[in-house]
């Protein structure tokens, strides 16, 4: 019984982590139609920024996250201006390959600057709370979950209530119609991309005390973000939360119930879930800003 409770707690904690990781990827895909293959590398960049802030200024990653958010927004804006703008209208292979190039450049550039050493970011919110006999709550992940819920609600309010948020949703649903009613689609895209990269960077800062910070941590995160997004629905905040929780619970269950190789199986889990979900429900589990539409003919 206490084991099951522990699995659920671990799963929800992991799900909170995946939620912040996946939000930016999901919204970029839903709104711009660009699959950000360098997503994990932007997470890595945020994690390094937070690590630097801690190393140089002694700033706790949870306090550094808002600063990282602002910094990464600027990075995102630059990337959007230089590259993404050129690939929005092109076939998906073009954007995929261009972002793939960006990911190679970022990971190897960071390796050049910081070497391939693993680094761990320290936070004051550390350790674990004893809930009852044999059941503990990991403190860092608990606060990441809180931050994730905060970001999710702020983002929902922004998308539902503000004028800019409404423009973003309109541009995602029908670009031409949005342009006709006077929405500056280019500006909307630029803001969306910058905002999402900001959130992604902040996610990197939040998980830096949990996952070791290193230049090549990106690709598995990109794969997970893709699996959750395609499974749950493109650009759906609800879907990001739900999909992340499902994946978190499954991975936590595998890690505890299958000893030894459970963590290796968890790597496979996201892929299996993705294919099964796409085949059974090609429009995504939760709906979203645009249909998933994954089946060939």
């Amino acid at each position: 019984m206490s084991q099951l409770l522990q699995v659920i707690i671990n799963g929800i904690a992991l799900g909170g982590m995946y939620t912040v990781l996946v939000l930016g990827f999901s919204i970029i895909w839903g709104v711009l139609g660009v699959i950000n293959f360098a997503h994990g590398e932007f997470v890595m960049l945020g994690a390094y920024t937070a690590w630097l802030a801690n190393d140089q200024l002694g700033l706790d990653p949870f306090l550094a996250a808002p600063l990282v958010f602002l910094f990464m927004m600027m990075v995102g804006f630059a990337v959007q201006k230089i590259l993404v703008n050129r690939v929005i209208d092109r076939p998906h292979l073009v954007s995929l390959l261009v972002m793939f190039g960006v990911s190679i450049i970022l990971s190897n550039g960071m390796k050049l600057i910081f070497s391939a050493d693993f680094r761990r970011n320290d936070t004051a919110l550390d350790g674990s709370w004893q809930l009852m006999d044999g059941v503990t709550i990991p403190v860092t992940k608990f606060f990441v979950l809180l931050a994730a819920l905060g970001i999710v609600s702020a983002l929902s309010v922004f998308l539902q209530r503000t004028r800019m948020g409404k423009s973003i949703r309109a541009a995602a649903q029908n670009r031409e119609a949005a342009r006709i009613v006077g929405i500056d689609v280019k500006k909307v895209y630029a803001i969306t991309f910058a905002l999402c990269i900001g959130i992604t960077g902040a996610a990197g800062a939040l998980i830096s005390p949990i996952l070791a910070v290193q230049p090549f941590q990106g690709p598995p995160l990109t794969l997970k973000a893709f699996a959750i997004t395609a499974m749950a629905g493109l650009g759906s905040i609800k879907g990001a939360l739900g999909g992340a929780m499902i994946l978190g619970l499954i991975e936590a269950g595998l890690a505890i119930y299958i000893s030894g190789i459970g963590t290796n199986l968890a790597v496979i889990a996201s892929f299996v879930i993705l294919v099964v979900a796409l085949v059974l429900r090609p429009q995504g589990l939760f709906g979203g800003l645009r249909p998933v539409d994954a089946m060939a003919s």
């Binding site: 699959i35 998906h92 995929l96 598995p220 794969l223 893709f226 699996a227 395609a230 790597v267 496979i268 996201s270 892929f271 299996v272 993705l274 294919v275 796409l278 085949v279 994954a294 089946m295 060939a296 003919s297």
Partner: peptide, 20 residues
């Protein structure tokens, strides 16, 4: 199995196969 998926879904499913 994977060629039932199209475009980016196929690409990432194959990347997943590789990792798996």
């Amino acid at each position: 199995a994977t060629m039932r998926l199209k475009g980016p879904y196929f690409s990432i499913a194959m990347l997943g196969t590789f990792v798996a």
